[in-house]
């Protein structure tokens, strides 16, 4: 486990980083339109990290991304979620101040069926993004802890 796996696996996993990140971001950012959202998208991105951990070995990965920095990212994600909820407090806590505002994510949509516009939803994509960051960091931390725990045992 210390040295990781063969050069073929390492190369392939590095090549896969980009598609997996893009897919994760796609699931997160389309959370208000399609099945998915912050949690599944964050989990997809955490899978990418799990793949890298397996390919390169837990020791090397720990140097690259420690538990401390993951915890910080996690807290920042949660704080971002709360901050978005707080910005709306001029009306009420959690109010959707971006919806129908004609600015970012604020497109007004007429009543009735439509193909789904990304530029709608108000604060929902922002909250999905915050949840995505939090879930990404948390699941990565869990995987890291489980990998290093197994190393300590053996």
């Amino acid at each position: 486990m210390n040295e990781g796996m063969s050069a073929i696996v390492k190369t392939m996993s590095v090549l896969l980083i980009m598609p997996m990140t893009i897919f994760g971001m796609y699931v997160i950012i389309h959370g208000h339109l399609t099945p998915g959202g912050g949690f599944p998208g964050g989990a997809v991105m955490a899978t990418m990290m799990a793949m890298l951990f397996v390919a390169f070995g837990a020791e090397k990965s720990k140097k690259f991304l420690g538990k401390g920095s993951l915890s910080t990212i996690e807290s920042l994600g949660l704080l971002a979620f709360a901050a978005v909820a707080f910005i709306g407090i001029q009306a009420t806590f959690f109010s959707n101040f971006l919806a129908n505002s004609a600015s970012y994510f604020g497109m007004s949509i007429s009543y009735g069926p439509n193909p789904g516009y990304l530029n709608s939803g108000g604060v929902l994509p922002l909250m999905n993004l915050a949840v995505g960051i939090e879930v990404f960091a948390a699941i990565t931390a869990i995987v890291l802890v489980m990998l290093t725990y197994r190393e300590e045992k053996s």
């Binding site: 709306g88 009306a91 009420t92 806590f93 959690f94 109010s95 959707n96």
Partner: peptide
């Protein structure tokens, strides 16, 4: 009474 997310509480 406080309604979360409404235009007035």
């Amino acid at each position: 009474v406080y309604t979360l997310g409404a235009s007035v509480p």
